[in-house]
Design a protein around this nucleic acid. Structure first.
Lengths: 250, 250
DNA sequence: TCCAAAATCAATCATAATCATTCATAAGCA
DNA sequence: TGCTTATGAATGATTATGATTGATTTTGGA
């Protein structure tokens, strides 16, 4: 069976049943599990489907809710720990840039008593920041429905009006050679811009992001301080040569 | 049964019946109690439901939402009529400024087929615009918690990047001598700025705003076209001398 | 009201399923 | 032949699951 035929089969099946199990595909196509996994990964990159544990589903029509909320729920406790740790680096009265993202979102409760001014590009963060009584500026611009992050020339320009004492960014991967990366080039550009406007930049990325490389580069490792939870010994050594790493005490 | 499938099942069931028992889910999915508990915990983290003893219910709307929703519910039908009327002035392909506010919010469904590009200063409008697949830029800036409107120098500056074919503003009062007014001076400044960048400006204000004067002036009556529902005869005459008025046909 | 039984709960553990990654091989193509 | 791409098997890691435990909450009768 041709690769293309399998892809067609998967998509057609998905279109009818909305959901598909890897084992079922293996049984009906005769291909190996590895191959089917590769198929699904590829189709996911084309945004034709969304992978879930054990199979795949049609991409949520309400992407904002389904996939972002999914991610937010995952490892919530670890995210909170990392967020609290990150917030501990903030001084009273700092001007803070807070990147859009589920981990940075968890930092908000810990900003309450710091008398900070926050600038963010995250739509979902604004309301929560306001509820906590934190003075907040939103960059504005064009919104990415998937992440609720603002991007584009307008966003970049907005940022130029500010200087930050401290800047917190999310990243999908960090790698000794390729630096910090994230899937969307436009979001990467915003992150980079924010970083250059800050006296100190911290990147929040848990251990699952170690050695991962995503499509768009944000910046090199040495441009920021990495905050993470735990990390395998030998990887840590390589990374530590390039950047300053701080690990949450467990 | 995939984890994702169970989640879908639970949410769908909840959406119909408003309430769900753990035992019922166990019986109908065949999964263990532990698993279902974990499902519910996760869905609660996503704010898709609220756990109660023995099961789960649909999440209760928080206070912030309810008070805004209250306001929105008031005269909802009239607002929708006025909004639909306003949208009828939009040409295909127009660049549109949409002011923050409950009436302008109701215009969104009618923008769908107009292939417009929208710029707005209203936080609550962005998500709805995105759901309707409308290309949207948010001005950003400092948010006014009560109205969800962005204001300040940042907002004003953002606006300077655009020119609008058509501009829709809300107002709390219109008056022959004092013009269009609104309670917040900063919001008034944004409205005025948007108006000067537009070829045509429409103000949406129902009859209850007639002859009312609020603290901050947006602009004189002759700077825009007033859209309203009905208006007492003698007032209308006075207003009409100063501005172009269009009344919804009832 | 109070108490005890029943139901439900969170937390933990071991197991099973699924996962990404790597490597060696096979197939396609110049 | 030499090169690229696709495949399948093996691995160790990650995630999901079900059973068990003892704690907590609800229920219903005295």
């Amino acid at each position: 069976m041709l690769t293309h035929e399998r892809h067609e089969y998967i998509l057609k099946y998905l279109d009818e049943k909305k959901t598909i199990k890897i084992q079922d595909i293996v049984d009906s196509t005769g291909a190996s599990e590895s191959t089917i996994r590769r198929d699904l990964t590829e189709l996911e990159n084309m945004q034709k489907l969304e992978r879930v544990f054990g199979g795949a589903v049609l991409p949520g029509r309400n992407l904002q809710e389904s996939s972002v909320a999914d991610k937010a729920a995952r490892n919530l406790q670890e995210k909170k720990r990392l967020a609290k740790f990150a917030a501990s680096f903030i001084q009273k009265g700092d001007s803070v840039f807070l990147d859009a993202g589920t981990t940075t979102y968890q930092m908000i409760p810990y900003l309450k008593d710091k008398e900070v001014v926050v600038v963010t590009n995250g739509l979902t963060l604004v309301e929560s920041l306001n509820e906590h009584g934190i003075t907040t500026y939103l960059t504005g611009g064009l919104m990415k429905p998937l992440t609720g992050a603002f991007v584009g020339a307008q966003t970049i320009q907005s940022l130029g009006n500010y200087r930050f004492d401290i800047c917190f960014l999310g990243a999908n991967g960090f790698h000794a050679e390729y630096g910090y990366t994230t899937p969307d080039p436009e979001e990467a550009a915003v992150k980079k811009r924010a970083s250059t406007l800050a006296r100190k930049t911290y990147i929040l990325a848990d251990h699952s992001k170690a050695n991962k490389v995503s499509f768009a580069k944000i910046m090199d490792l040495d441009q920021g301080i990495l905050l993470t939870d735990q990390i395998a010994g030998n990887i840590l050594e390589v990374i530590e040569k390039k950047t300053n790493v701080k690990v949450v005490s467990s």
